[in-house]
Design a protein around this nucleic acid. Structure first.
Lengths: 150, 150
DNA sequence: TCTCTAAACAAGAATGATTCCTATTCAGGA
DNA sequence: TCCTGAATAGGAATCATTCTTGTTTAGAGA
């Protein structure tokens, strides 16, 4: 079940609109990086995108791919799945808990909830595989950072 | 609200038991790395742990901290909060969705659920800050990897 | 208590992802 | 068509993490 041609076109059009709206240039590289994602369903990483786009734009650099992805994310055109900047965070609290992550300072707060511990997993997930753990991730601005911003 | 002395002792005892149980040595370094986590509530990263432990064990190396954290995680004594191996994964699908992550191959599958889109956030979270998004993360073994394992 | 050996360690090199730097190119408004 | 700031290429630099090699040591057994 690939992304339909029509949906890809719609997404490309949204890119064009967003660029016109902001003061962003609609460059060849930007279009090709986004096109790669517009048709993908497998959450590729930056390197994969780079390798694929390179077939069409041989001179493109890794840096451009990274920069473009960051720009697209800022513009709300793509979504980056990741917790933090890649640094693992550890704790010795083994009780089942969930996380509130401040997108500003990266601080993580634990919280507990019986209701959230026992989430209703949609039946469709079963086809992906066997679920071993479920966790809720909340993102937002922590009280501390919100204060500092004023 | 620091971790109580009693709870720290309980955790240290669990470490000792686990080491005796497996064929793990109860080394000075291992104890100090774990002690650091047993008393922490702020999900420190490896570097922070290294810097703190170094005050007590000046000769400890970063590698030992990383290795020890991995061992403790394997033994179920600590918990590592992180999505993937640090590589960001992108997609152009901006509809609100949740993720099933295969812990074996790292593949990510999207799924949708009205119920999960509107989770009951515990009141206590409000004191941490303003929540901007909520997402459910399921982890498990995908059908493909489960097949390959046999 | 002493000895022995696999497990664990220290130090620093290596790796892999990502970002920065600098000179060059180019999209799009005038 | 011309100009200018935004965007790019290429490669160096950075940051977290892992690997390699030689050394130390916990704890089992004599």
């Amino acid at each position: 079940m690939a992304v339909s041609k029509a949906e890809i076109e719609r997404r490309m059009e949204r890119l064009a609109q967003t660029c016109r709206g902001g003061r962003l240039k609609l460059t060849h590289q930007r279009m090709e990086v986004f096109r790669e994602l517009a048709g993908a369903e497998d959450h590729p990483d930056a390197e994969t995108i780079y390798q694929n786009v390179r077939r069409r734009v041989p001179a493109i650099s890794r840096d451009t791919v990274y920069r473009t992805l960051a720009t697209l994310e800022e513009q709300g055109l793509v979504h980056k799945a990741e917790i933090l900047s890649g640094r693992g965070r550890y704790d010795a609290n083994m009780e089942h808990h969930h996380h509130f992550i401040c997108t500003e300072c990266g601080r993580v707060h634990d919280f507990y909830s019986r209701t959230l511990d026992d989430l209703p997993i949609p039946r469709s997930v079963a086809s992906f595989g066997r679920v071993e753990s479920a966790q809720v991730q909340l993102r937002g601005i922590c009280a501390n950072c919100a204060k500092g911003k004023r």
